[in-house]
């Protein structure tokens, strides 16, 4: 489909670099050699994700397409691209900063909502992001009470972060605007297998794996930036 180059934001990248605090240097060095995409685990399992093209669009200034793409949210953050990049472009940092930009435009909230709960209910509450609460019914059946295993290993039944520690990270969160941002985005409820009822446990255990596993074919793979849900509606709030 014909694109109008005049619609691109020619100096977006130049303007953005200082705002992004030096996390996103050197994209203009990109040779478009494709070494990043060649080793990319996300590119291997999705039809459209392609780090090389994201860099291309960024340097061209086709920023609208990047921010509104579903591909932006498919990066694995494995740093494989950075480790092989012949020009030392630290691409995961680009994704990180671009996602912040996308959320500003109202995109990607659905994704972040899933994760906000870990910050709100675990990190800021206990000081530990991965909590003792278990969200996998099979694991509960096999492992049982983690507290007992900790005791047997000679550790306290529960790892507790001091009240002062928790208070301090909450203070950082409040002062830096993280708390208000979390309120704006909102979060989802997280289940805890240790406290849920049998019916819920049954539902979780019989939930099939995502249908794509082991069945992805190559015929659908093309440059196919889609539009994620919620963008324009969220941007208005």
């Amino acid at each position: 489909m014909l694109e109008q180059v005049k619609d691109w934001d020619d100096d977006f990248y130049e303007r953005w670099k200082p705002i992004a605090m030096g996390f996103v240097n050197e994209a203009e060095r990109c040779l478009q050699c494709g070494k990043c995409t060649g080793q990319c685990p996300a590119a291997a399992v999705t039809p459209g994700y392609n780090p090389r093209k994201l860099i291309r669009d960024l340097v061209d200034g086709n920023i609208k397409r990047i921010l509104s793409s579903v591909e932006l949210w498919q990066c694995f953050f494995c740093s494989g691209c950075y480790s092989t990049c012949p020009m030392d472009i630290n691409f995961p940092f680009f994704i990180f900063m671009l996602r912040l930009g996308a959320m500003n435009e109202g995109y990607g909230w659905e994704d972040v909502k899933q994760l906000e709960a870990y910050a709100e209910k675990d990190y800021l509450k206990d000081g530990i992001t991965v909590s003792i609460r278990e969200r996998n019914p099979f694991v509960v059946d096999t492992v049982g009470d983690i507290g007992k295993i900790r005791e047997a290993a000679g550790l306290p039944t529960k790892r507790v972060v001091s009240k002062r520690g928790v208070a301090e990270i909450n203070m950082i969160s409040d002062l830096s605007g993280m708390t208000s941002f979390m309120k704006k985005i909102g979060g989802v409820d997280l289940l805890d297998c240790n406290t849920c009822d049998d019916a819920q446990a049954r539902r979780c255990k019989t939930k099939p794996l995502p249908s794509k596993v082991g069945k992805i074919t190559t015929k659908t793979r093309f440059y196919n930036y889609g539009e994620p849900s919620g963008g324009k509606t969220n941007a208005k709030t």
Partner: peptide
């Protein structure tokens, strides 16, 4: 051998 066919935008 893993690479991208960058004209098609697809890993091969």
């Amino acid at each position: 051998v893993r690479a991208e066919d960058s004209l098609m935008g697809n890993p091969v």
